[in-house]
């Protein structure tokens, strides 16, 4: 399903319903960017047909210029081949921390790949995108990216959440009280198995540093719907979820 988040930022991608009835979304974000669309992650192979149909509808005759991968696990790259088969001129942008000969599909050629270096910003199709380290991540070569124009921070797995069926298409402002702590907790305790071994205070301090450094207006998690209304409230609830996971598991 195509949903407009803000300005020229759109969200597509579907979800997987678990055996317990909770959904895990796998999103692709699209910045239309006035003739040179930018995609963030490629979506799951499970949802290939719907994603490609949505992309064709959204992009029309305009091929995407760049596909930014937050990291290279299958839920983020599973639809990459279909995208590049459809639009072979698109470039892939990955973290400079990955080794492409082992961490990208074998059919990706060297001239298709560009690297984002944490601490830098580059212009893609006239649009400045800055790169930072993935702060909370499950693969070393994960980076977070920031679109200065919309104020969107693409956070890969972090800020993901599981939701019930009723929330499938809803942004935070369309929920009664934003994304609940419980939904964030359900995802993060599953995705980041190391959290019981760490200090919640330190994790949250690092997350807070990211938001203190830039004016984030939208959070784009791959495994959640975009947070476009109450970013600070969502960060606070994530902080609480992290605290609960770290401390209660230890107890």
């Amino acid at each position: 399903m195509i949903r407009r988040v803000v300005d020229d930022l759109y969200q597509i991608g579907e979800s997987i319903e678990g055996t317990d009835g909770w959904h895990e979304p796998v999103r692709v974000y699209v910045l239309l960017n006035d003739g040179c669309p930018l995609l963030f992650d490629a979506g799951s192979h499970v949802h290939r047909g719907q994603i490609m149909a949505n992309l064709r509808e959204l992009l029309g005759d305009t091929p995407p210029g760049y596909v930014f991968l937050t990291h290279t696990e299958l839920p983020h790259t599973g639809n990459l081949k279909a995208i590049l088969d459809a639009w072979p001129s698109a470039k892939i942008v990955v973290s400079s921390a990955i080794l492409p000969y082992c961490e990208l599909p074998w059919w990706v050629t060297e001239d298709q790949v560009m690297y984002g270096h944490a601490g830098t910003h580059e212009t893609y199709g006239g649009r400045p995108i800055s790169f930072l380290d993935g702060i909370l991540k499950d693969q070393p070569g994960t980076h977070w990216m920031f679109d200065e124009k919309t104020g969107t921070l693409f956070t890969a797995d972090a800020f993901g959440y599981f939701y019930p069926t009723s929330a499938e298409t809803l942004f935070d402002d369309e929920l009664d009280a934003g994304v609940p702590t419980d939904w964030l907790r359900r995802y993060h305790e599953t995705a980041f198995r190391f959290l019981p071994l760490v200090s919640a205070k330190k994790v949250n301090a690092d997350i807070d540093k990211v938001f203190a450094k830039r004016n984030v207006k939208v959070i784009g998690p791959t495994h959640g719907n975009a947070i476009r209304h109450d970013v600070n409230g969502c960060v606070t609830r994530l902080n609480q979820a992290i605290l609960e996971i770290c401390e209660e598991t230890k107890a």
Binding site: T19, D20, W22, E24, V26, S44, L74, P75, T190
Partner: peptide, 9 residues
């Protein structure tokens, strides 16, 4: 002890 195995293949 996980779920959503489809997205991981």
């Amino acid at each position: 002890d996980n779920d959503h195995y489809e997205v991981q293949g």
